[in-house]
């Protein structure tokens, strides 16, 4: 589904990603862990199409096509979804309006009928149960005045409504208490199936108690220093990232 080959990227002249290789197949959940500044969020941002990042080398194939050539909205229409580390507040735009516009944009792109207000509302109310969100959130402006936990749940709600093929969760666990963490993780697990895939970017192991990854990759200084299964996450938890920083093995090829 996703194939990242020798990806290099920089931000304002600083090279952050220095040769990432990663392969994600349908049905898989990959966790990307790493210390602050290792390039985790840069990787997520490059995949989502944030123009802050400049790709200098390498390629990313998504379902056989060059992902980096697609505009961010096209990526979303093609099924790529990023849950933001810091969801953006949009005063003046209601959550319903926003979600409906997004869903219909994607459906239109796929040549499907657009949802009318009634159908949309029943769909979105159904999905809200998944993230234990009160329907009153629908009339509130997007993320405006939401708590940290509410914002993250709103991200998962969007994910549930838009039903992506590839989800990238950028530090979705940051700033969450244990209840919110459980709700968010339950949402992600419920949406996971054999056809889709997720990349879970996180600093801490604790999210992985709830979302069980098939693979864990440790990102250090812009490269994947080590890959393994979920046991690797426990190892990191015990030994800290300093241990990983000392790894001198070359970046492993795609798993």
């Amino acid at each position: 589904m996703l194939e990242i080959r020798n990806l290099h990227a920089r931000v304002e002249g600083n090279e952050i990603l220095k040769g990432i290789n990663l392969r994600v197949n349908p049905g898989e959940i990959h966790a990307i862990m790493g210390p602050n500044g290792s390039g985790k969020s840069t990787l997520a941002g490059v995949l989502a199409g944030k123009d802050l990042y400049e790709v200098t080398e390498g390629e990313v194939l998504y379902r056989g096509r060059n992902l980096l050539e697609m505009d961010p909205d096209v990526r979303a229409c093609e099924g790529v979804f990023m849950a933001f580390q810091y969801p953006v507040e949009i005063p003046g735009v209601s959550n319903t309006y926003f979600l409906k516009a997004a869903l219909n944009a994607i459906r239109k792109y796929r040549g499907e009928n657009e949802y009318d207000a009634v159908d949309f509302l029943s769909l979105v109310k159904d999905k809200m149960k998944l993230v234990e969100m009160d329907p009153s959130f629908l009339n509130r402006p997007v993320n405006d005045g939401f708590s940290g936990g509410e914002k993250k749940r709103n991200e998962i709600l969007q994910m549930a409504v838009l039903d992506p093929v590839l989800s990238i969760l950028d530090e979705t666990d940051s700033g969450l208490d244990i209840d919110a963490l459980r709700i968010v993780a339950n949402g992600v697990n419920a949406l996971h199936n054999e056809e889709n895939a997720a990349i879970v970017v996180t600093h801490y192991q604790r999210l992985l108690n709830y979302i069980i990854p098939d693979f864990v990759h440790v990102l250090v200084d812009g490269r994947i220093a080590k890959s393994g299964d979920k046991e690797l996450a426990f190892q990191l938890e015990e030994q800290g990232y300093d241990w990983a920083k000392d790894l001198h093995q070359p970046a492993p090829e795609a798993v």
């Binding site: 979303a76 990023m82 933001f84 997004a102 944009a105």
Partner: peptide, 12 residues
Amino acid sequence: QLFYLLSRGINR
């Protein structure tokens, strides 16, 4: 804000 909307499939 613009990127947030784009990232959800809404065109520019």
